[in-house]
Structures are given as structure tokens and as C-alpha cells.
Write a protein that binds this DNA or RNA. Structure first.
Lengths: 236, 236
DNA sequence: GATATCTGTCATGAATTTGTCACTTTGGAG
DNA sequence: CTCCAAAGTGACAAATTCATGACAGATATC
């Protein structure tokens, strides 16, 4: 089972540590951010499965951050749990309806936290990943864990599969090698960036039916992009 | 292999015809409905394996119809693909999260449509006839607690039997060893995951008549999958 | 209670996957 | 056109992951 990554956004180190300990005991990977800026970077680079967001922060309030995420297509459905100082605050924030998926007031018990997180992740992940990912006649079925081109199954190693899945969930966007590392391999891996070239090579090779290898384009000096447009050109 | 029936729900005859031609070429049986009323009748009477549902219809919107189906136990898991007029609409509808299994925007290419449908059908429904689970000539009778391949009974231990039953109820889906443990052994068992490999081995051995052992595929780095497709390949 | 069957674990060997490296090719700035 | 950095490619060894047969304890059957 894939381990889920949780991003903790809070300016108090004590709180962060507390949460981190609780979450790691519950078998989650943790990333931390102490302000809105770091949080934004962590979200785009590491794509956590869930965010614990303190609502009171020195620079931007958590609410503003959350609003921004909700407007962005990529982070629109990112599960977010708001951390509030007191229960009264919770009600006030609920009233604002900023789009958080759940609220927890400090002080919180680690057990409750873990179970709410689990419930939220369980609820949110399958909805996204049960759908077929499609680009022309390239189809990836996340449920069956199968990819096919023109009805013909392609055999992919676990890494190639994950990479293709990531690309197909975010088509037409260029990613740097570092971003790919974060998203496909996960946070905190130290792997040579050239290695990605090799995996790209392997993925292209596997997809090379009727020109489908061109669907992964190289963006010179930057990284790679999964481009549906590439299909239209060669097919049409 | 049983032929699958697809219900086309759209008020425009031109679209219906187009879809019908494409689907019949792809070897599906088609039923048509031009409004929500007809669609409801067709679903209850003919029990299609999949529904293509136009989201914009004169009387009730497709969404309302879908919501109704999802609330009904009988049609709860009926695979539904939503047809939308434009790509932009698609995103809007996704946001509503009405429970469609997939979305396709017009105009769609017949080939793409067919492959999406196949992929969706493939992974969705186990073939259940009364009390029998069927996959080609592999038949499992839960009532008699018997399994047979090509009419020949196969002898399975209790665990192998339960595993096969689970697989046949969820064909074409990849499961991790952990998921298999939870579903076949039950929650909170602490059994080495490698043990599953051994049971898979035993199950395969028992099914090894005329290539039927290949119906259980290993998904490297992930787990296993009971794949009806494996049959089609060797049989067809 | 004896016998047969089933289960979980382990050791071993085979197969696949993965990260790196060395070398070639390519794109484009100057 | 020349040259350099970036990307493509094939090969390889280490690491991971599976398949398989054997075995002893548990369970069921008669």
C-alpha cells in the first residue's frame, strides 16, 4: 500500500513536532511548512495527499491560502483539515465556508486526529483515482493497474507506471526533473536526476506504438511534458 | 464471452445513430432511449452493462437520472459514462461529483469511445448469473461451494476457495497483498504477505487446466489481478 | 485417535526492475 | 559552422520481487 503524505502547515515548531510524531506513528509521511510560502512550495512540489492547515499564521492566514488552492485546478480537491485554536473559532470559520474538508480544534488527541485523517483520505482518494485516464487511444486504468495503447496492453515497471499515471493526471504541463522526482518517487529521495532520463526513455519505449512515444516531449533545459497535442499532430 | 449491452441515452437521433454504429462495430449490443423516462424503463427491463448518458436532456437532466440510480440498490454500481457537449462542461460536471464513472466530451472519435467503454466494462462487473460466478469456462458456485473449469471440478482448500470467490467478484482489478489479506482473511490478521504468494500458487495450480492458471496475473511491485482478459487472449 | 488435508513459513533460485555510467547524438548560441 | 551543454541510448550489476518445493504444526475427517 502506498504511504500517504501529509503536509503540516503551522508556524509553531512545537505543534508541528507534536503532529509529526502522531502522524508518523499512524504511518504517514510528513512534510512541514512554517508559513504560507513554504506551504505553497510544498504543495506544488510534493503533492501531499492531505494538508493540515493552521488557520492563524503570521503572514497570510490559512484561509487565504486555502482559497487560493481552491481556485487552482490542480489543488481544487486537495483534502484540507483546518486547525483552529479553540472550538469557538471553529464555528466562526465554518461560517465563512472557505472549503476546508474538516476542522479540528486544539488541543487535539493524536488518536482522533489520525482517525479523522484516515477517514478523509479514504473518502477523497478513490474518487479521483477510479476514473480512467485517457489520452487519445492511450488508456490507463488505475483500478486494474493497466495501461494500453490502441487496445494493446503495454507492460510497465512500477516506476514507469507511476510516472505515466502522474503525467496523465497532469497533462500538457512541463515538469522539472526535481518535480518529477518528488511526485513519482516521493519526498526525500536522493537520486540522480539523470536517472529520470532513463525512465523517460523506458516509458517512451513501452509506449512506442504508432507514434505514442511522442506523447512525452522533452522541454530542453527544463524537463518533460506529457502533451496530448502531440497526438493530434501525428494522428490527424 | 457474453456480448455486452450498452444503453444510449440522448435526445438527438443523430448522436444516437453515430454511437450505435460505433458500438456495434465494436461488438456491443445497443439499446436506445431518447429521454429520461425511456432510459429508466430500459435500465430496469434490459439491465444494460453500461449506460452512455447525455447530460443535457429536455426533461430531466442526466445528472438527476444518475443520482436516482445511485440511490437505488439495484443500479448503484451500474457503469455510467457521461456525455458532455464541451470539454469545459466536463470539468464543471466533475466538480459536481455525481458519481459517473467516466466522462466523454463531444465530439468523440468512435475508436476512442469504444476503447474507453471496453476498459470500463472490463473492470466493472463480475458476471453473476443467479448464484454463479462465471469467467469463461471457469465457474464458481457459491451455493454448492464448488469451482469448475471446463466442467471439470477443481478441488480447493477453504482459503483458496475464498480467494477465488473474492477475485471473481472483483475481476480485472489489481489488489495489493494487504488488500487481499483484508478481504480474504479478514481484518487484523498478522500474516506474512509472502504467504499470499503461496496461496496464489496453490490456486493457480488448481486452476491449471487449459491455461486457466493465467487468469490470475501478478502485478509486479503491487499485487495480483484476476483478469478475464487473459482468457480472451488465449481463447480468441 | 489415526489419517488426511490444509496453512503458514521458510529457503532457494529465477526473473524483473532500478539506478548509474560511459558513450553518442542533438539543439542551438555564438 | 563550431562547439558545448543537454538529452538519448545501451549495457550492467545490485537490489528487489516472485515462483516454487519442502516442511512442520494445526485442523478436520472418519
Amino acid at each position: 500500500m502506498t504511504r500517504k503524505t501529509v503536509l503540516i502547515v503551522d508556524d509553531e515548531p512545537a505543534i508541528r513536532d507534536m503532529l509529526k510524531v502522531a502522524l508518523e506513528m499512524a504511518n504517514f509521511d510528513c512534510i512541514e511548512a512554517k508559513n504560507a510560502h513554504e506551504a505553497q512550495i510544498a504543495v506544488t512540489d510534493n503533492r501531499p495527499d492531505l494538508v493540515l492547515l493552521d488557520w492563524m499564521m503570521p503572514d497570510v492566514t490559512g484561509i487565504e491560502l486555502l482559497r487560493r488552492w481552491r481556485r487552482n485546478e490542480d489543488t481544487q480537491y486537495l483534502p484540507v483539515i483546518m486547525l483552529t485554536a479553540k472550538a469557538e473559532e471553529e464555528n466562526a470559520i465554518r461560517g465563512l465556508d472557505v472549503g476546508a474538508d474538516d476542522y479540528i480544534s486544539k488541543p487535539f488527541s493524536p488518536r482522533e486526529l489520525a482517525s479523522r485523517i484516515k477517514a478523509l483520505i479514504r473518502r477523497s482518494t478513490p474518487i479521483v483515482s477510479e476514473e480512467l485516464l485517457i489520452a487519445g487511444e492511450l488508456i490507463l486504468d488505475p483500478v486494474g493497474r493497466l495501461a494500453s495503447v490502441k487496445g494493446q496492453n503495454v507492460s510497465l515497471g512500477p516506476t514507469e507506471y507511476k510516472m505515466l499515471e502522474f503525467f496523465m493526471m497532469h497533462p500538457n504541463r512541463a515538469y522539472t526533473r526535481e518535480q518529477l522526482l518528488n511526485n513519482v518517487w516521493g519526498a526525500n529521495v536522493y537520486i540522480d536526476e539523470r536517472t529520470i532520463d532513463v525512465h523517460i526513455r523506458r516509458l517512451r519505449k513501452a509506449l512506442s506504438i504508432d507514434g505514442y512515444e511522442n506523447i512525452i516531449q522533452t522541454v530542453r533545459g527544463f524537463g518533460y511534458r506529457f502533451s496530448e497535442e502531440a497526438l493530434i499532430k501525428s494522428t490527424d
